[in-house]
């Protein structure tokens, strides 16, 4: 065991995700149903490799993988891919979500591997039982949001064909538009609730660690902003009937808020006490 074994696994996953990304793109650009059918044979092994690294880290350190860029990267795409695998197996018509989740995960892993793949010492701040709740719900929420935006994308793609009255056997295999609409909304609500739990758990943790539940730290504000965007989206759908294309476009762009919360704050703003990376006392 050790570093070599782990890097073998993670690189295996990265290569497979890269191949899958190319297959998915080809399938969607050239409307190749058979390629799409083939993807599952690569996705499952890739997910197994990815999961092995994920759980290996968890058991090795005893903490949910969230220590430093690499562990965060491994955890980031995990839930998204889990949902994708489930959709591939259960609701074949919704396989298109892979178009968003797989390249995103590929990007996360690529970024993480380039940073610091070795096991880092666990900072005192991270030694809290809130870590698993806080971070797991963050990843769960973002997994669900990613799926929602993936569904948004296939909604738009299918809707374009329907609007132009193009008969396509490829797109006919997708569920009817209202089904996609409903499914993306459900993932949004699921993500929103997980997001709320993440913020609540983070606040409780912050009370013991930094002394107050909420201190308007940039990461806190960004989380709140992206959470409110999703909250607003849900209200628009429920009370004002904003479904369909509008909802789909919002969901595709709302993910940006998450990207900024995750990377933007760490990389650009810097004056946050909420370091996703390695922090001193």
């Amino acid at each position: 065991m050790g570093d070599n074994f782990e890097s073998l696994l993670i690189w295996g996953a990265v290569y497979l995700y890269a191949v899958i990304t190319i297959l998915l793109l080809t399938a969607f650009i050239f409307n190749k149903e058979r390629l799409l059918n083939f993807v599952i044979y690569l996705l499952v092994p890739a997910f197994i490799l990815h999961s092995t690294v994920f759980f290996m880290r968890w058991s090795m350190t005893g903490y949910f993988p969230a220590n430093g860029e690499y562990e965060n990267a491994v955890a980031e795409g995990w839930f998204g891919i889990l949902f994708t695998v489930i959709l591939f197996l259960w609701k074949k018509g919704l396989r298109g979500v892979g178009l968003v989740t797989v390249p995103a995960t590929l990007f996360f892993l690529g970024y993480g591997i380039m940073k610091n793949p070795e096991v880092l010492p666990h900072g005192a701040a991270l030694k809290s039982s809130w870590l698993v709740i806080h971070v797991m719900f963050a990843q769960l929420a973002y997994g669900a949001y990613l799926i929602a935006s993936g569904l948004g994308l296939i909604y738009i793609l299918k809707d374009n064909k329907v609007r132009k009255k193009i008969e396509s056997t490829f797109y006919n295999k997708f569920p009817a538009l209202p089904v996609i609409d409903e499914t993306m909304f459900r993932f949004t609500v699921f993500g929103f609730i997980a997001d709320a739990i993440m913020i609540a758990a983070g606040s409780i943790w912050a009370k013991d660690l930094w002394g107050s539940y909420w201190s308007w730290d940039p990461v806190e504000v960004w989380s709140l902003v992206s959470w409110l965007i999703y909250g607003l989206t849900i209200h628009l759908k429920v009370t004002m009937g904003w479904g369909g294309r509008r909802l789909a476009w919002i969901l595709i762009f709302a993910v940006l808020g998450i990207v900024i919360t995750y990377w933007g704050v760490d990389i650009i703003v810097r004056n946050t006490q909420h370091a996703f990376t390695v922090s001193a006392l």
Partner: peptide, 20 residues
């Protein structure tokens, strides 16, 4: 009305965002 809620949330969003 729901419009009012949407307006208030949007205003708060803008304000919080401006702080960043």
């Amino acid at each position: 009305s729901a419009k009012m809620t949407a307006i208030i949330i949007s205003a708060l969003l803008l304000l919080f965002f401006s702080g960043l």
